[in-house]
Write a protein that binds this DNA or RNA. Structure first.
Length: 419
DNA sequence: TCTGGGGTCCTAGGACCC
DNA sequence: TCTGGGGTCCTAGGACCC
C-alpha cells in the first residue's frame, strides 16, 4: 500500500502559518515578478481566481474582495517543506520526496495495519508540528493513491484522508473521475482519449491494453496497470542526482544592454554552478539562451537564441563557467532588441570524482577550486551573496517582489550578528 | 506598461559500426 | 519484384510532472 501526502495550497498555506489572522481568508501567491497567480487557498478559488491568473488583470478584483496577495518567498517554502518531510518520516520511514509539497510513502510493513488510522496520524501530526494542512490518499499503487488524494482533498466527509482498497470502491471512484485528472495523463492525451470515447478513469482502466500501448506508449500502459491495482511505479527513496540543471528568469524590465545581460547570465551561472557542486557533479555542456518573451512585438527572426559550448574538461567551477557563458552571450546577443528572458543550462553532468582531464588544459583547476570552496564557505556562513563575482556588478535585482513576506525561518541577519 | 520556473522519460530517425 | 542482417549512440521532439 502506498500513501501520497500532499499539502493543500502549499505556498499560500506557508504564508498563513505566519499570519494566523488569515486563516479562513482568501490568500494567493504570485510567481516571480508578481506576474501571475501560482497558489490559491480554497477561499480564493471560490471567489473565481483561476490558476495562472495575470495579476494586473485581477488586482482590482482582489482588492475589492479582500484577497491577501503575497509575492513568492521560496526560501520560506523550502524550509517549511523540509519540516513537513521530517515530520512525515517520523511516522513512515520509507518515503519518496516527490515535489516541494508532496511525498509518497510505503505503508506495507508497518506494525499498524489500519491505514486510515495512519493517514489521520500523519495529517494531525503535520498540522500540529508545522501548521500545514495536508491531504492523504492511500491505495495499492501510486496512481490510485493520487486518485484517493483527489477525493480526500475535495470532499469534507473524508476529513482529508481516504483509503481506496477494495475493488468496488475503487471502480466507483474511477467512474466519477475525469480521465484528465489521472496522474500521467496530460492535456494532449486526455483530449485524444476523449475523442476515442474514453472519458472517465474507469474507461481508461477497461480499454484494450494493446491499443493503450500503441497510442500512449509504455508510460501510458503503466498508468493503466496501476489503475487496475498493479503497482508499476516503484517508490524512489533516494533522490537521484539531477541530469540537467537550468536557471532562468524573466526580467521585469527588458534588457537591451549587453553588459546588463552578462550580469544576469553570470548570476544564473553562480546559482546553477552551486547546485552542481552541491550534488558533486560537473557539466560537460553549457548552454545560454536569451529571448524576447512570448508577447513581444519585435522578435529576432529565430525568436529564441540558444547556443551551447562543449567543455573539454567537465567543470563546476564558477570562474571558468562565467567566462564561457559571457562568450556565448557575445555570440547570441544583438543590440536593438528587447530581451525579456534569459537562462543558462548545464547538461552532460558527470560525477566530480570521475572527470577526465585534458592534456592541453590551461585552467588552474586546483587553485580556482580552492577559491570557489572558500566563497561557498563564506556565503554559507554569512548568507548568500556575501561574496559576489565582479562581473555580476553590485547585486542585481533579478525580479520584482512587491509583497514579499519576511524570511521568518531562514533569514541570516535575524539569527546571527555579523560584526 | 503588466503573462513563472524547474525537471523527467520515451520514441523515432539518422549516423555510424561490423 | 528484387536490395543482408544485426547492432549502438546520439539528438530532436513530444509527452508528462510539480
Amino acid at each position: 500500500m502506498y500513501a501520497i501526502i500532499d499539502c493543500n495550497s502549499f505556498y499560500a498555506s506557508c504564508e498563513r502559518v505566519f499570519a494566523p489572522h488569515l486563516r479562513n481568508k482568501p490568500v494567493v501567491v504570485l510567481s516571480n515578478n508578481d506576474g501571475c497567480v501560482i497558489a490559491r487557498t480554497s477561499e480564493a478559488k471560490k471567489l473565481g481566481i483561476p490558476m495562472g491568473a495575470e495579476y494586473f488583470k485581477y488586482k482590482e478584483y482582489m482588492e475589492k474582495n479582500n484577497i491577501k496577495v503575497f509575492s513568492s518567498n521560496y526560501p520560506l517554502y523550502a524550509d517549511m517543506s523540509e519540516r513537513m518531510i521530517n515530520t512525515i518520516s517520523e511516522i513512515v520511514p520509507e518515503i519518496e520526496v516527490y515535489s516541494i509539497d508532496e511525498a509518497f510513502a510505503k505503508l506495507s510493513g508497518l506494525p499498524e495495519k489500519d491505514y486510515r488510522k495512519i493517514g489521520l496520524e500523519i495529517k494531525n501530526r503535520v498540522y500540529k508540528y508545522t501548521g500545514l494542512p495536508v491531504s492523504v490518499g492511500i491505495a495499492p499503487a501510486k496512481t490510485l493513491a493520487k486518485v484517493a488524494n483527489f477525493y480526500a482533498k475535495r470532499y469534507p466527509k473524508f476529513s482529508n484522508v481516504l483509503v481506496l482498497d477494495n475493488p468496488t470502491t475503487i471502480d466507483q471512484a474511477l467512474g466519477l473521475l475525469d480521465v484528465s485528472e489521472i496522474w500521467g495523463i496530460g492535456y494532449r492525451y486526455s483530449k485524444f482519449l476523449k475523442n476515442n470515447n474514453i472519458k472517465s478513469a474507469l474507461d481508461l482502466k477497461n480499454a484494450p491494453e494493446a491499443w493503450i500501448k500503441k497510442h500512449l506508449k509504455v508510460t501510458g500502459l503503466r498508468t493503466q496497470k496501476e489503475l487496475k491495482g498493479v503497482s508499476c511505479i516503484p517508490l524512489e527513496t533516494v533522490q537521484p542526482d539531477k541530469k540537467q540543471i537550468l536557471v532562468s528568469r524573466s526580467f521585469k524590465n527588458a534588457v537591451t544592454d549587453i553588459n546588463e545581460m552578462k550580469k544576469a547570465v553570470s548570476t544564473f551561472i553562480t546559482i546553477a554552478a552551486l547546485k552542481m557542486r552541491k550534488q558533486h557533479s560537473n557539466a560537460s555542456i553549457l548552454g545560454v539562451f536569451v529571448n524576447s518573451g512570448r508577447f513581444a512585438q519585435a522578435r529576432r527572426p529565430s525568436e529564441d537564441c540558444f547556443k551551447t559550448a562543449v567543455l573539454q574538461t567537465p567543470s563546476n567551477n564558477t570562474f571558468e563557467l562565467i567566462k564561457i557563458a559571457c562568450n556565448l552571450v557575445d555570440s547570441i546577443f544583438y543590440s536593438g532588441y528587447k530581451y525579456k528572458k534569459a537562462g543558462v543550462f548545464f547538461s552532460g553532468l558527470c560525477p566530480e570524482s570521475g572527470v577526465q582531464f585534458s592534456f592541453f588544459d590551461t585552467f588552474d583547476r586546483d587553485k580556482f577550486s580552492k577559491v570557489v570552496k572558500t566563497i561557498d564557505f563564506l556565503n554559507d556562513k554569512y548568507g548568500k551573496n556575501t561574496v559576489l563575482f565582479a562581473v555580476q556588478g553590485e547585486q542585481i535585482k533579478l525580479s520584482t517582489q512587491e509583497m514579499l513576506s519576511p524570511e521568518y525561518t531562514t533569514k541570516w541577519s535575524d539569527i546571527i550578528e555579523v560584526s
